[in-house]
Amino acid sequence: MSAARYRIEKLLGQGRHASLWRAMDVDRRERVALKVASRGCLRREFDTLQENQDGHAVKAHDCGVLPDGRPYLAMEYVDHGDLAHAPLPEGGAARALNDAALALAGVHRRGWVHRDIKPAHLLLRANGQVVLCDFGSACRAGAREDRAAPSLVGTPRYAAPEQMEGAAASTAADVYSLGICAFELLAGKPPFRGETLTELFSQHLRAPVPRLPPGAAHWQSLVDAMLAKHPASRPADGDAVLAVLRENHS
Rank of each mutant, 00 (worst) to 15 (best):
E76T: 12
I117P: 05
A60N: 05
L83V: 07
V78D: 05
L73G: 06
Q129I: 01
W112F: 14
D116E: 15
Q50P: 00
H80C: 13
G142Q: 02
P89N: 09
P119F: 09
S137M: 13
A143E: 12
H85S: 13
M75K: 09
E76M: 06
Y72G: 07
D99N: 14
D134I: 10
L122D: 13
P71D: 09
I117H: 01
D68K: 09
L104F: 00
A94V: 14
D62R: 02
F46I: 11
N52C: 15
A138V: 04
N98F: 11
P119C: 02
F135K: 02
H85D: 04
Q53A: 09
A96W: 04
A148P: 00
D62N: 04
A93E: 15
H56N: 15
R109L: 09
A96D: 05
L83N: 02
K59F: 03
W112P: 06
L97K: 13
D54G: 09
A105C: 10
A96S: 04
E90P: 08
N98S: 12
V113E: 08
L42V: 14
L97F: 02
D54K: 01
A103Q: 00
D79R: 12
G69Y: 00
P89L: 10
V78H: 04
L42N: 11
D82S: 15
T48Y: 01
R125D: 01
A94I: 09
D99R: 01
N52V: 13
A138L: 10
V130S: 12
D68R: 12
L97E: 04
L122Q: 06
A96G: 09
H121N: 15
E51G: 08
R43T: 15
A57D: 00
A143M: 08
Y72V: 14
A141R: 12
V131P: 01
P119A: 11
L42I: 13
A148S: 14
H121W: 00
D116S: 14
A86D: 00
A149M: 13
A74S: 11
R115A: 14
L124G: 00
S137C: 11
F46S: 05
Q50H: 07
H80D: 05
A101L: 12
L97D: 06
V65G: 03
E76W: 04
A149P: 07
D54F: 10
R115T: 03
I117M: 14
